[in-house]
């Protein structure tokens, strides 16, 4: 009920403000009934409740994602974390800001840790054998369990973790899970790519983000992406 109520609220507000002529609206809650004319240049991607399981389990790790997509890339995003009374927002080429009831501050990521001291933020759920093998063989072994992609990326912005990895199994994260968190991370100076370094694309023919996604505060991003590819190749060879 919370999920649907918030989805309806966000859609009504955005549609009232921006209309249907220039904008398309895609929400996790309404996606299946919308299939699918997305010819607008500007597309709102909305996840009204990211981290549903954590919301139900009362961990506090849930978030709202709102992203505006142009030419398959995010140009504006909001990640709201209600239990922290915080929203993170970013626009393309203008940086990331953290807003609380007390203040608004820019966020710039800096770290001088060694590769072994980096901390991975991982899911409590969504685990499978291939991902577990990868996590066990990376050079950085510190892990912190956080729910919701938005909250995971917020943990990196708060410099309580350094890396987030998504590796699809039978299912994959959807555009609305990733787009808003991506922009708040990259505008703060982080990186969010496929394992091969290529950028993510949204509002394509497939709403799923298949494969390996690597998000980090940028230090060692390329090295660790290459290492992840090597470890997965090793795993796949072992399974043959």
């Amino acid at each position: 009920i919370a999920d649907i109520t918030v989805s309806q609220y966000i859609l009504q507000r955005l549609q009232a403000a921006f209309g249907d002529e220039d904008f398309t609206y895609i929400s996790e809650e309404t996606y299946k009934s919308q299939l699918q004319e997305q010819n607008s240049q500007l597309v709102w991607l909305i996840d009204p409740l990211d981290g549903t399981k954590d919301f139900i389990d009362k961990t506090g790790d849930y978030a709202i994602h709102i992203a505006l997509i142009q030419d398959h890339r995010p140009i504006l995003s909001i990640v709201a974390v209600p239990e922290a009374e915080t929203i993170y927002y970013a626009t393309k080429d203008s940086g990331t800001f953290k807003e609380t009831p007390k203040a608004t501050v820019p966020i710039t990521l800096l770290t001088e840790k060694s590769i072994e001291d980096l901390t991975l933020v991982v899911s409590r759920s969504h685990r499978h054998e291939r991902l577990n093998y990868l996590l066990q063989h990376l050079p950085c072994q510190n892990q912190k369990a956080v729910g919701s992609v938005g909250c995971k990326i917020a943990t990196i912005l708060e410099q309580k973790a350094d890396i987030y990895i998504s590796l699809s199994g039978k299912s994959a994260p959807k555009d609305w899970d990733i787009a808003a968190p991506e922009l708040i991370l990259t505008e703060a100076g982080g990186s969010f790519t496929h394992f091969d370094g290529s950028p993510l694309r949204y509002n394509t023919d497939d709403i799923n983000q298949w494969g390996g996604l690597f998000a980090s505060n940028s230090n060692y991003h390329q090295i660790l992406c290459q290492e992840a590819q090597r470890i997965l190749l090793e795993f796949d060879n072992l399974k043959r």
Binding site: V6, Y9, I64, L68, L76, I78, V81
Partner: peptide, 27 residues
């Protein structure tokens, strides 16, 4: 204008957060 769009989206984000927060705490 992206700044104007952002101002509306931020307000929507805060209000949506209030709604979820209320459900989460059963208030």
């Amino acid at each position: 204008d992206l700044a104007e769009i952002l101002a509306i989206a931020r307000d929507v984000g805060w209000k949506a957060a209030d709604i979820l927060h209320s459900y989460y705490h059963g208030t």
